[in-house]
């Protein structure tokens, strides 16, 4: 169920080199249908992305998350909102809830705090 893809900044650059300028001003580079988390602010550095839930992020991204994007696809009955929690298995309090199409480039409070997330039908 869980799908985790790790994209290095170098690989991302190679894949999008021709469009780097166009995409930097556009939507964050996050596949449709997925929730993406970056180690750096403003959607930079290494990226993790999931199409499903993850109760405990892998160590390289947990508590090092700095920007987020929800590119979930909506539809009747589909869980398209994402809730991020500061502890594994949705513990310790929710830090942010994002509807589809919403992005956070930086968060002074929730920076480097995320440990898990779930998809939900609403916030």
């Amino acid at each position: 169920m869980k799908r985790l893809l790790v994209t290095t900044a170098a690989a991302l650059f190679a894949a999008t080199a021709g469009l780097a300028l166009a995409t930097s001003a556009g939507a964050a580079e996050c596949p449709s249908g997925e929730f993406c988390v970056w180690q750096d602010s403003n959607f930079g550095g290494q990226r993790a992305n999931w199409s499903g839930d993850d109760g405990w992020w892998e160590s390289w991204i947990s508590d090092t998350d700095s920007s987020w994007a929800n590119h979930g696809i909506s539809g009747p009955g589909i869980k398209d909102h994402v809730k991020v929690y500061e502890s594994a298995w949705q513990g310790g309090g929710m830090t942010i809830c994002l509807a589809p199409g919403q992005e956070v480039g930086y968060n002074g409070a929730a920076n480097d705090r995320g440990d898990s997330h779930i998809w939900s039908t609403g916030c």
Binding site: A27, G101, Q102, E103, Y106, N107, G108, A109, A110
Partner: peptide, 26 residues
């Protein structure tokens, strides 16, 4: 598809929450 669905260019919609997060969208 993403550009058509979520929008492109500058992020015109922006709200900074009391938690410190600035949530944006096109």
């Amino acid at each position: 598809l993403r550009a058509a669905l979520f929008g492109a260019g500058p992020r015109e919609l922006s709200v900074t929450l009391a938690t410190g997060a600035t949530v944006t969208a096109h």
